[in-house]
């Protein structure tokens, strides 16, 4: 570790790393990760936005790719052309269009169908299944509600039961699980608080609950400086986003040590080829790259474009979203 130069975000290298991902179409790995492609593109573009390098991706090509993932028969987005639509890839598709200010490249009837696709996956208890195969998880509540919010199509019929479901996922320790009764996990805390933030219902939590949430979240920081997702687990760069965005949403961002976390994230950089890994000296990937950079952005380091903890997109983009409840 001594050789590592502490204290700089290798911005140019990260931009080049993200740029290179699109050019790996001759590798097996590229094709094996098809089922996550649209998410990967969103992670890459989001990182580029924070790094002020949005133009590295070709806008027209990307919009074409996203529209190619739209599934006419169901109205959702798939992770890759000719795959099935899913709520997780639907949010990524909508985010990508929003980031290019291109929601209107969908026709009115395509948007209507998309809204119906999302709503049709809501269950009686207010939760959402990811697709018709019935996997229920607070992740899909967030992806559904955030998608509808970006499309500015939230309604009380969808929002109120979803909020009830989220509140039922609150646990004894101050965290949230993936469904009622499930163990607290930092990524689920983000999806739950994020949902409440999108629909302007964070005030449904009591002051005592918010203090407990803040306590549980700040105990995620380990002596190395990184954050873990659950007690007694190893730190991982992606929690720089899940934990910090959550703390930010309840206005307790400074309850962890910024300098220590910054050092941990910077130690996870690949200094030669760019990109950020989960832990120092591991293989980098675009998922940890974007969430490492997003963590630094939330803490206000490195002159990055500020990111909105509610939507995980930069503020210049999210500022234009109409806030719920609509007047």
């Amino acid at each position: 570790m001594a050789s590592k130069e502490r204290g700089t975000l290798l911005k140019e290298k990260h931009v080049r790393y993200i740029e290179s991902l699109d050019k790996k179409q001759d590798t097996l790995e590229f094709w094996l990760t098809e089922h996550l492609r649209i998410n990967g593109v969103y992670w890459g573009l989001n990182a580029l936005c924070m790094l002020r390098s949005k133009d590295v991706f070709n806008r027209e090509d990307l919009i074409k790719f996203v529209l190619g993932c739209y599934v006419e028969s169901t109205g959702g987005f798939a992770a890759f052309p000719r795959h099935d639509a899913h709520l997780a890839s639907t949010l990524s598709g909508i985010q990508l269009l929003k980031m290019y200010d291109a929601i209107d490249s969908l026709s009115k009837s395509q948007i209507d169908k998309c809204v119906n696709f999302i709503k049709s996956n809501q269950m009686k208890d207010g939760s959402f299944q990811g697709d018709r195969f019935g996997e229920v998880d607070t992740r899909f509540v967030y992806t559904a509600i955030s998608s509808l919010s970006i499309l500015e199509r939230l309604t009380p019929e969808v929002v109120d039961p979803a909020v009830d479901f989220i509140l039922r996922c609150y646990n004894f320790d101050g965290g949230f699980g993936l469904c009622p009764g499930a163990e607290s996990h930092a990524a689920q805390v983000f999806t739950c608080l994020g949902t409440l933030a999108v629909v302007n219902r964070l005030q449904d939590l009591t002051k005592a609950q918010v203090d407990e949430i803040g306590w549980w979240l700040c105990e995620r920081q380990v002596p190395e400086g990184g954050l873990n997702g659950r007690p007694s687990k190893l730190p991982d760069v992606c929690y720089s986003w899940w934990v910090l965005s959550s703390l930010s949403l309840i206005d307790r961002l400074e309850w962890i040590d910024f300098e220590k976390l910054r050092g941990f994230i910077l130690d996870c950089q690949d200094e030669k080829r760019g990109g950020i890994s989960d832990r120092p000296d591991n293989e980098v990937d675009v998922f940890h790259t974007v969430f490492g950079i997003a963590g630094l952005s939330l803490m206000g380091f490195e002159d990055l474009v500020p990111i909105d903890p509610t939507y995980c997109m930069t503020y210049d983009i999210t500022n234009t979203i109409k806030k719920y409840p609509y007047n």
């Binding site: 803040g214 700040c218 105990e219 920081q221 307790r252 400074e254 309850w255 962890i256 040590d257």
Partner: peptide, 8 residues
Amino acid sequence: LRKNRYLC
């Protein structure tokens, strides 16, 4: 690491 919570 958590000193700001205690200050709060």
